[in-house]
Design a protein around this nucleic acid. Structure first.
Lengths: 311, 311
DNA sequence: CAATATATCTGACTAAAGTCAGGTATATCA
DNA sequence: TGATATACCTGACTTTAGTCAGATATATTG
């Protein structure tokens, strides 16, 4: 704001560790030391392989072994062997363990709720938190396939429609547009991809199969907090790989000049503008791209900085 | 973004503790356990009273005593008595202690710089950090008097001018405006106030003394990250208190209809619109407020949510 | 196959953090 | 003034976290 970046980051750190740092207390408050609590929470959140947990928490193997014994003695976990490699072990929550894990989760929730109350849940604050979490976690953002009906897909799509409505001068009504049927964006005809940051969907794109010899790219959207991280390019590259896998050799898409970031991406990554190929009332720009032949792949080095909000 | 607020806050917390948490490592890396390092840093950052440090760090008196002994043995601090209450003690850094404290500061700076590099110092990220630090620390924002020439005042003023330039259709050139001479905004003629969040100036307002029987309110500005926290009201109330102290019973100000948040604040806190009283080219709205008589004070309950960006 | 690496476990140890019961000197209150 | 509270100190103790050197069983490599 008014100071050098280093001072700003340190000020942020001070604020967060003194105010939000209370959240760490959620690993205590159940009469168990931090060590076993961390292991129990790692297991509860889905990590079952002992080796993984040890690497994730950075624990010495001797210490890890003892922490497991103490959780076992409490009746919270059970250890079982690994079928493929019998040196390795896996952990599983017992019924009592699942209850205990749920209690830790409830503690975390309560402490987050306290922050929410204290600062009146201002949307600006939450948006800033999203931006920071997404930016800091950019290396952990994964692209995964999901059905269009998945609640995470649906939440991206409604954000996408909302953004179109705000950007288009005359608004956007999905029922007037050629809404791809869900079946067309599922295998084997098509696909639907999500960019997921730490469990939160922050972007999507759909591949709509047709019977006309090409597939269409639809619903490319990146959440505001995740723009500028190169996600739309990652989504498009993965979508293209899937399109080839499904046997397509040509992709098409329609978009709108009110979405300049998206248009910029297409122009800079090997798409060719073509004539209108549908009668959807919203788009005014149409692109095509040959994907089967060598040299037609998305050029990773033709990088464009801007991130499409929607396309 | 796409999820409930509790989940968003918890996600933020995870991201921050895993990525920024590295900053805590700055308390290590000097071959000293966390305990004495924390105490040394508390003393270095200006806390001298042992009792205060103990309360701040949440330490048992026995533990505190031993930590002080170990720092003393290293020759980093000296303990001295307290003149007014000889039960109490104060700590002071020796020369070696000041060097050691500086080394910790350098470590913190280096680690903040690493985050900065890793994420390419994107201004959006820093702005989000400022917003969070300021919001979480709102209870610790203090209003203090400063000279207009103070570097912190100057940084607020240049941000203020920049914002006017962006908001006014024909821009803003401070040399065309009636720039209050610094002397008019210093005691005994006037005053200048800063809102300071954790060392960082996030807002200002000036009281410009005149010989015409009134004082003028000038340069009311709140940093974007600090809007919505009620700071402009706090600044105005403190300024009014000082104006009464300096013997004024009437305040005036000019502003512009391009600054609706500021205008809203004035209308909602007892100011009366009056006719133009100067020939400055920029303002188009003029207000007055009687401050001496009872019942003329800023009504704390007439709260308006919006925060003036500038006024 | 032998040599080497990996995954986990056990026992012995240390360092750090924290707790608790007093002790001394001083301040404050009724 | 006497009773009580406060600030700091010391010594004895416990808990937690972590380290290290093997031991055992299994997997991988040349």
């Amino acid at each position: 704001m008014l100071s050098d970046p280093i001072a700003r980051i340190r000020r942020f750190h001070r604020a967060v560790t003194s105010e939000v740092g209370v959240l760490d207390a959620s690993f205590l408050g159940r009469g168990r030391p931090l060590g076993p609590a961390r292991v129990l929470n790692a297991i509860g959140s889905g990590r079952r392989d002992i080796r993984d947990i040890r690497a994730y928490l950075g624990l010495d193997s001797g210490l890890m072994s003892r922490l497991l014994r103490s959780l076992e003695a409490e009746g919270l976990i059970e250890i079982e062997g690994n079928a493929s490699d019998s040196r390795r072990r896996s952990a599983r929550l017992t019924g009592a363990g699942a209850l205990e894990y749920a209690a830790y989760e409830a503690l975390s929730d309560a402490q987050a709720a306290e922050i929410l109350d204290k600062h009146q849940a201002r949307e600006r604050l939450l948006a800033a938190m999203d931006l920071i979490a997404t930016t800091l976690g950019r290396d952990r953002i994964v692209i995964e396939e999901a059905r269009p009906g998945d609640p995470r897909s649906q939440s991206c799509l409604s954000a996408y429609y909302g953004e179109l409505a705000a950007r288009f001068e005359r608004g956007f009504d999905v029922s007037l547009s050629a809404d791809p049927e869900a079946r067309d964006m599922e295998r084997p005809r098509g696909s639907f991809l999500l960019a997921v940051s730490d469990g939160l969907p922050v972007g999507c794109v759909g591949l709509k199969g047709t019977d006309k010899g090409y597939a269409e790219v639809k619903r490319l959207w990146i959440a505001p907090a995740a723009r500028g991280l190169g996600l739309s390019r990652r989504l498009m590259e993965e979508l293209e790989r899937i399109a080839i896998e499904l046997g397509y050799d040509r992709l098409r898409l329609d978009t709108n000049s009110a979405l300049p970031e998206a248009v910029g991406l297409y122009r800079n990554s090997g798409w060719t503008e073509i004539a209108r190929f549908n009668d959807d009332p919203y788009p005014d720009l149409f692109f095509e791209r040959i994907i089967a032949g060598a040299g037609a792949r998305t050029g990773a080095s033709t990088g464009v900085g801007a991130e499409p909000a929607a396309g």
